[in-house]
Amino acid sequence: MSDPIDWAVGYLSGATGTFVGIVVADQVRDLRADSADFEGVDLDAPTGTRALLNDWGTHRATLERLAHAATTGVWLPLSDLTPLAPLAPRQILQAGANYRKHVIDLAVSHADIAAGRTEEQVRAETAEMMDKRKREGIPYFFIGLPSAVTGPDADVTLPAYSDRHDWELELAAVIGTTAVRVSPDEALDFVAAYTIVNDLTTRDLVFRRDMPEIGTDWFRSKNAPGFLPIGPWLVPAEAVPDPQNVQLTLTLNGDVMQNESTADMLFTVAELISAASQTVPLEPGDLILTGSPAGNGAHWGRLLRNGDLMVATIDGLGSQHTRTVSEVTR
């Protein structure tokens, strides 16, 4: 890959409406003034960035040119704008149990489902299982709903049906070229950009206690409105030369809860994309979540409450600021 670049794509709101823009430092180029360069792309709409991804090979070069043309176009101060979700994903594929330490911690937090074992036994058995998965297994995916997507700085309402809502910071890959049964060696060539997601989870809904033979219920536990903050930006893939050497950090009210490298992934980003593409064609605008590292609330014994502030940061990709609000019931 080339040297890191210094611009990103966002979808923002300001005094003149919503628009797709190029973010360079503390300035944003309003691409509506450059619409002649993006024929057929609705630069006012949430689907605008996905339309850019549909012809990323062409549009990427134009975006980079405009990002470096500081004396042309319409530029606005970032401080006057609100970042919105930078992508309306077509499909959301979520990798589960993909950080070794995280899975071990989760197994311990759910140890009540394995009555009679000690914490040490659960840790040892889970570590052995993870090592075997790496040697012999394949990634585990489930499907998220686009209706759960929200912006990087939006408040998120905690549904009143539970008090066990949790955070899961993740690196997400944005597909820019159709990928069908690609190999791990070529998989990263199909990534247009990377972004931040916080895959919020309702812990007591993960397992179906009434149907233990069915196992997990990702539909109910992960798809409440706003449970997938995305952004703030789509950072071109070239700015992340090694997705297995990126630091993820999440703070809760200023306290560090997650602070881990993507090096702890069981399956690499390339292996995840390759595995997903064996079953379903990946298309531009698809979002591949790559799992969350250790340090979730279930591990700390501290779940989300009304008024909490999560700051989720991934090196080179920016930060999210998510405040939680309790649902008002009648």
Rank of each mutant, 00 (worst) to 15 (best):
T202C: 03
T195L: 06
I138Y: 11
T262I: 13
N198G: 06
E64M: 05
N245I: 04
F19W: 07
T201W: 03
V197N: 05
G116T: 13
D112Q: 04
T313L: 02
L31T: 01
W56N: 06
R302M: 03
M211F: 07
N245M: 06
P46I: 01
T157V: 15
L188G: 12
A263M: 04
L106M: 13
L43A: 12
E170M: 09
L81P: 01
A294H: 01
M211T: 10
V28Y: 06
G254E: 12
A25S: 13
L252V: 10
S274D: 11
E120M: 02
T324G: 05
A95R: 00
E128S: 08
G231V: 11
E39Y: 10
D155W: 07
A88V: 03
A36W: 09
D44M: 05
W56E: 12
N98F: 10
T202A: 05
G144Q: 09
H110R: 09
N296W: 00
W300I: 04
A33N: 02
L93T: 13
I5V: 14
T324Q: 01
T72N: 09
T62D: 00
T47K: 00
G40Q: 14
A224C: 10
R123I: 00
D112N: 05
N245S: 15
H165C: 10
A25W: 01
R60D: 00
S162I: 05
D6A: 09
G144Y: 13
P86R: 03
E125W: 00
T16N: 09
T157H: 13
T126S: 14
N296V: 15
P229Y: 11
P152V: 07
L205I: 03
L317I: 00
N296M: 15
S13V: 02
A25Y: 03
I92F: 12
R32Y: 10
V311S: 03
V197I: 15
G318T: 06
I175E: 12
A298K: 06
E238Y: 04
A107S: 15
I314L: 07
T150S: 15
D264K: 05
S35C: 07
S162W: 11
G307R: 13
Y194G: 02
L145H: 14
V311C: 00
L205H: 07
S292L: 06
R181H: 05
Q258K: 00
A187T: 10
P212M: 05
E327Q: 14
G297I: 07
P293E: 02
D80F: 01
P243A: 02
D3K: 13
G231P: 11
A95Y: 08
D255V: 08
I214P: 00
G48C: 07
A114I: 02
A114Y: 12
D308F: 09
D55M: 04
A95T: 09
F190T: 03
L158K: 02
N259G: 01
D44N: 14
L66W: 06
A115V: 13
I22H: 07
A193P: 03
S221H: 12
L81K: 05
T157G: 08
D3M: 13
